[in-house]
Structure formats: structure tokens, C-alpha cells
Design a protein around this nucleic acid. Sequence first.
DNA 1: AGAAAGCGTCGAAACGCTTCGACTAGCGGG
DNA 2: CCCGCTAGTCGAAGCGTTTCGACGCTTTCT
Lengths: 342, 342
Amino acid sequence: MTDGHPVDGHATGRAVTIVEVARHAGVAVSTVSYVLSGKRAISADTRRRVLESVRTLGYHPNAGARALASKRANVIALVLPLRAGMHVPVLMRFATSVVTAARHFDHDVLLLTADEGLDGLRRAAASALVDGLVLMDVELDDPRVPLLRRLAEPSVLIGFPADAAGVTGVDLDFAAAGALCVAHLAERGHHEVVLLGAPAVVYERGTGFARRTLEGFTAALAEHGLDGTALPCEEGFEEVHATVSGLLAARPGLSGLVVHNEAAVNHVLSSLRQLGRKVPQDLAVVAICPDDVAEPARLTSVLIPAEEVGREAVGLLMEKLAGRPVPPATLLVPRLTVRASS
Amino acid sequence: MTDGHPVDGHATGRAVTIVEVARHAGVAVSTVSYVLSGKRAISADTRRRVLESVRTLGYHPNAGARALASKRANVIALVLPLRAGMHVPVLMRFATSVVTAARHFDHDVLLLTADEGLDGLRRAAASALVDGLVLMDVELDDPRVPLLRRLAEPSVLIGFPADAAGVTGVDLDFAAAGALCVAHLAERGHHEVVLLGAPAVVYERGTGFARRTLEGFTAALAEHGLDGTALPCEEGFEEVHATVSGLLAARPGLSGLVVHNEAAVNHVLSSLRQLGRKVPQDLAVVAICPDDVAEPARLTSVLIPAEEVGREAVGLLMEKLAGRPVPPATLLVPRLTVRASS
DNA sequence: AGAAAGCGTCGAAACGCTTCGACTAGCGGG
DNA sequence: CCCGCTAGTCGAAGCGTTTCGACGCTTTCT
């Protein structure tokens, strides 16, 4: 019992119910329930006795019964994309931060994959399996959004659809991030900069964050009077190398690179190394990526705050579950960390 | 209604219950239940009427009530590691294949992260939130294993602990995979080969798959009379480069490389390129990694069949849930695909 | 012809919890 | 001195399913 848990003998076998706890503590079943939920005042003495019985019997409330009676499953759904062009480690960090944050609110996380499509959402919601949903990687024109609007269960999007009416979204302010990179390079005295973005397919699909970065980048270019452009960028070394060498050949004046592609950024660096360009002397590189990609490569970067986004999404969902109003859009402000590449 | 779903007007609002379906179809509640579960014979006519009512009312059984009455949540837990040294994309493929397979058996997946530790497992199991567990990335001496043995809920491990008594495991046969790589290189006439493995921390932790590959590799070396050794390998480009150039300097006769490290394999290739070694002319490379890493790099490889492992794990769990006996260890036989690197 | 064995259906009893209303003390205010 | 509070507790009514036993009907076997 050193780990604070009951003698583990009864881990196996029929589960302990609230009735047994009540009997053991010499109180009514409802009293046990109130002790555990804190929804009514309970004398210190009774509370103590009940909690002790709970501990010694190793009681865990039955999730199904609880859900049935309270109409709350204490579970939220996390809908992951799992599609081409998404950087998986980043995804994973969102996922784990959602799980952690949810546990903080005493909720669990049900994993839904996007390939079950609308039916999956409908099913999870209609069967009261989950109380609410968090969706990742929302596209500009996402078929799930109209469905979400109709669902009784509240939901929070990570990313924004084109028509965000009636939904709640949270994300890094990618437009500001793109602009911030440009501003940084302008300040460093660069005159010609290029954005190396996500694979072409991501733009075609209309994934919001890629487009918004692009818009922010382009607007900032004009604002600072810089020359430059944006290119999509595939993720294999060979493709990256081809893109980079083509780019350097075509733009001899190029002195700054903004890379918004976690998977390609290391290849870009290898490629420059191979082409004999020194970073940051010959070329400054700024990345938009998570810290654990930027850090080891000593890249100046705007980090993608996966943890924060996930936490925020869960926080918003909990607010909605509690019936409180929440802002329709939450944009996290980007922060740039200067490292060795600019 | 073109998508085969009821008029979506009532997606919002109070959920339809089995009582309403029964009334609508003019039968008893239990009859509806039996139609849906198929556990008793029902006349074709009644079945049709009930199914139609289900469809037009848009009925979805309440998960909580169902779990309470049937003592089955129809949910399994997936316990993910999320720890240093694991290659995340591979993890993700396991995860999605588990989800997909589970859906095939009409089960959902609850995501637990390892950092909730033993308590998380205990809680999920004891509260009947889940019917069974799938655990990934089991270490040789894993504290969760004793707990699992005691749990009433069945579980399946992906990977094997040192003491596998009383648990069910499934994995690629990594020893055979290591041996297969050696055999392939021997057959190609190589006499000196080296295994570049996982980061050192992975070995220290005693993660089974890394060790087993090593054992298979070493045994096969002896069996084929080859010269060689094994080295752990970190994942950053610089470290890989240092390891590789050191290795080439130390072993002028080296002509074959086995790489068992998804994250490093591309760096190894870059590094060789940078050192002016041609693959496969100067050096043959065989990787143990998922196809989507090997394919684009045109690497000869033994693939890590993430999909298959996940599917198998869920299949085994379902067997156990049905009370049927399953083999304690399921080893998937490795297959080597020859591509351009050997 | 009568018993045995299905088939198809129904009613009602769980399942384990939350929550509502009611009840008892004890207490302060008029 | 009585009234109305509040704090603390209890009992019982759900919550929406599944499943067990029972009940008529047919059919099949002696």
C-alpha cells in the first residue's frame, strides 16, 4: 500500500459499487455520491468516513452508470486528420496536450480518426459517448463544420474554416507569424526573401494555416518594401534539394528564407550545406515550426505552440460544456526566438 | 437524405430512445433490442419495421445505458508512450490501425498517455470505461505488466517484456529481421557489416525491439561468418554525420550498413552523400523501417508492418474479450524488399 | 393425438449512479 | 415562544439499455 492504493488483491473480480461503500461507511448511497461530487454540504466527519471507505474498498465509480444518470460521459472526442502532408510529430503534440488538459478537467479522450468521416462524429455525439468534440486540421471548406453547427454537443476547432459562423476556433495567428518572420528579416537588412511552404497538396486542399501564413507573409513583404515570393515545398530530400538549388539559381540576390514546413526544414539545411551556402552568413533562415525541431538545428523560429493550443482548445470546450459563452476565435500571438540561423 | 441519414433537423435536441423506437414500430422495447443485437430470432417482417423506425427516427443507442446494462463499454484503451527516442510517425500508424481495426469490431478507442502511469490504467479499467487495453512500447522491465496481470480486463501488448508470463504480446519478429538483413548482405557478397541502431537511451531503457534486433543481427553475423558490430545512433544530423564518418574511418573494409532507426536513416544517406560514398556501389544500406520512409529513399528494407501489428493486436484483444484462448506471443515474420540501396 | 421443441414476442427486473424532495436538528430573530 | 433558516442526511425515482423467464403458436416427432 505504499503507493497509496488499496491492497491490490481485488483488482480482479467484481467491481466495488457505491452501495458497498455506503454500507461500509454506514451512510446512505446518496451521501456517498454527494461526498464525491461536492454538490451538497457534508459534515467533515461523514466526509472523512466515506473517503476512507472509498479508499479501503478501492472504489471507482462505474463510468457507464455515471454517464447514464448524470447525462455526462466525462469524455471528449479528439478528431485527428491522419492525412497526407500533415507533420505527424506536431499532430502528436497537439494530441497529448489535449489528453493532458482533458485529464485536468477529469475528462478522458476518445480518439476518432477523420476517415470515419461525418458518421463517426454523428455516432459519437448521438450515442452520448462524448460530451464534446475537439477537431484538428480543419479545412477552409470543411464538410464537418455544418454538421457541428447542428450537433447538440459543443465543439472546438483547431484552425478555422472559411465560414466560421457559429463555431469556436483556436489557433496560432499564422498571418501574424508570417508577417513576424518578414519583419525580422527586414530588420536584419535583407531585401529579398522567399517563403518555402507546405507541400502543394496542402494549399490545394485549402488548409487554413498554410494560406494564412502565406497571406501574412505577402502582406508584410509589401509593407516592408521587400522583394520576394512564396513557393510550396515537398518533403523528400531530393525534391527539397531541387527546389532550393533552383531557387538560388533563379534569385541570386536572395538572402532570407522563411520555411514553414517542419518535415522539410532539415532537408533545406542539408541542401544549403551541400551547395556550400553558409547559414546565416550567405543566407538567413527563419522557420515556423515547433521548438523541438528548431532547437537542435539552432534555427531562429516562430514556434508552433502545440501545447498551448491544445490546452486552450480543451479549456474553451469545458467553458462551453459549463454553458458559459466563449469568444468565437482565439488567436495565439506568435513569438519569434532568435537562434543561430539569422 | 441523399446520404442515407435521417432528416437532420433533430440532430439537435433530446435524443431518441429505444422506447420511442418501440412505440413507433409497434413492438416491445426488448424486441427492438433483439433486432439490433441479433441475439434472438426475429421475424423478417418485424425486423424490417423496427429497422425502418430506427432509421426514420435517427436512433442511436445510448452508450452509457448500454454499457451499464450489458457490462460492455465497447471501448478499448490505447496506451501510447510519447517518450524520448520513439519515432512518432510510426507510433501514429500503429495508433490509426488500432482505431480502424477497433471500429471494425464496433469498438471505439480511448486514448491514454503513459504519463498518467499506472493510475490511468487502473482508473480506466476499474471504472469500466474500457473493456480491454492495448499497450504500445512495452519495456523489458515494465512496471505496468504486473498490474495488467492483476486486472480483470484483458490486454494485449505491442512488444514484449522480459517476463512475458501471463500476458499476450504481438510484434514484428525483430530478431529475424536483424538476421534477415545480415543474410541479405552476406548473399550479396559483403564481408563486413555494421548495425546502426536506436539512440543509446533506447537500449539503456531496455526497449525490447531494439535489443532483439541486435541479438538477431549478432547471431546472424556469426552464423554467416561475417565481420562487424553494432552501434547506437542518435537522431540529429550532426551526430549521425559524426558517427558515420568515424565509422568509415575506423573500418575501411566496411561495405554494408543495416540501419534500424527511422529518424536517422535519411541523415545517414545525406551523410554518405556528403562523404562522397555512392550507395550501393561503395556501401550497401539496408533499413528496418516503415515503407513510407524506405519507399521515397529507394531503400532496401525490412518494413515495420505497423498496420498489421495494430490489426493483430486488436484481433487478439477481441478474442480475449470473447473468452477464447489466444497464443501468448504472436511474431510477425519479416519480409525484405529489395530496392536501390543494396 | 399428445408431448416436445422451436420460434417470435413481451414484460419486468436488473445495471450503478445522480438528483430531487423531504425530513430532522439546531439556531437566530421577531 | 414560535417561525423560518440552513446544514446535513436519507429514500426513492429515474436514466436507457440488456437480458431472463414466460407465454402463446406452430411444427415435428412418436
